[in-house]
Design a protein around this nucleic acid. Structure first.
Lengths: 205, 205
DNA sequence: TTTTATTTTGAACGATGTTCATTATGTTTG
DNA sequence: CAAACATAATGAACATCGTTCAAAATAAAA
């Protein structure tokens, strides 16, 4: 079955080619501006071909969003060896925020856009594995912090969500262009100092 | 000049009619699904007429977004008489969150969508008056809290932004459908308990 | 009544996501 | 090698979107 094998490989290659073109384009021009036609033009195939390999645009966005989680997850895993739990929490937050600021379009897709969630619902995939996994990492670290005397009187689940929300909120406001307009401060500076203020709040015993 | 007067009034009325139709439709069906054609159909005028009164869709969205700020601002003003600053901060946060949960589409427009910000940029309105005003109310309250011994060691500006971010983050994740998927908890319950956890964190002297 | 000004209209344009009969290419078989 | 079959690629066509603008309808003025 050498031929069937090669064919299958070629199909996979073209699928990956489409995906990488989409990734490139939407990091460059943004998600909204990345059309199926522009992807087809980029890889020098016709529009129709894109639809042979992906059933619609949300499927492409969903796969990209998974790639994003793979990257973020990888960066997070490299922090698991930080033994002090509060230090680890801070490191996770920083990594998360840096990821958002350096990959604004991808972050937007992962945590703001509706397309990936719609794909999940439409395909009866009950759970959002990627997001779930990332949140687990945070919750475990928060648990460690509580066990080490931080966050007295707090409940694990709501607290973990609140912590995630606070960093996500900063990133989201930044990406959606509300920071400068509301505060009058320089966004990039404010993000750094606000993050430190947040961590100061979290790390009080 | 009775006629010119009446004409001007009629123009204003039609403008308002378009806006209210848009508001109704997008609270019902969502912003993305509210098209210029559907607005025209709702008020029983042609598409072209809409463009006589609004230069494009972002202008409509911008006006709606201003209405949203007027409403939120009004609800906030009624809390200015709460004398204890930490109580006021908590009340502001609750009001803000309730507004978001009860007017998801409007909140989305005000703090997530790009259209209103693009309109502001395109029209050389240097500042985002509405957002700026709302943030000022928060900052003043945070200032009062600091003066009363809360948030020791924190800086006003970054701290205020961090507080805003944390509540906005929760609302944003809720509206963009990430809460259940990531945490596994029931969103509506979690929002409440997470808010309390957040306030517990803020109110520690 | 005729002329002028204003308001409303909807066909038309370009761009989007998507579909599918047709064409082109590659593989197998007689 | 040629004919039959299978697979892959194509791009015109469709519906919908925001938007434009010459033409028609209506109102005001002369």
């Amino acid at each position: 079955m050498g031929i069937a094998e090669r064919k299958a490989k070629e199909k996979e290659e073209l699928k990956a080619l489409i995906l990488s073109a989409a990734k490139k384009l939407f990091a460059e021009k943004g998600i909204e501006e990345t059309t199926i036609r522009s992807i087809a033009r980029e890889i020098e195939y016709s529009v129709g071909t894109v639809y042979v390999y992906y059933k619609d645009k949300t499927e492409i966005l969903h796969e990209l969003h998974q790639q994003g989680f793979a990257q973020l997850g990888g960066e997070m895993r490299s922090l698991f060896n930080v033994s002090d739990p509060m230090e680890r929490l801070k490191a996770i937050g920083r990594t998360y925020m840096n990821f958002a600021l350096e990959n604004t379009q991808m972050y937007d897709l992962m945590f703001n856009m509706k397309a990936p969630m719609e794909f999940i619902k439409a395909n009866e995939e009950k759970t959002w594995k990627e997001g779930h996994g990332t949140f687990d990492a945070l919750r475990n670290t928060v648990k460690d912090c509580i066990d080490h005397g931080y966050f007295k009187g707090h409940q694990l689940e709501p607290l973990s969500f609140a912590i995630w929300s606070s960093v996500h909120g900063m990133c989201s406001l930044y990406i959606r262009d509300r920071v400068k307009a509301a505060t009058g401060q320089e966004p990039d500076e404010l993000m750094g100092s606000a993050y430190e203020d947040l961590m100061l709040l979290f790390s009080r015993k």
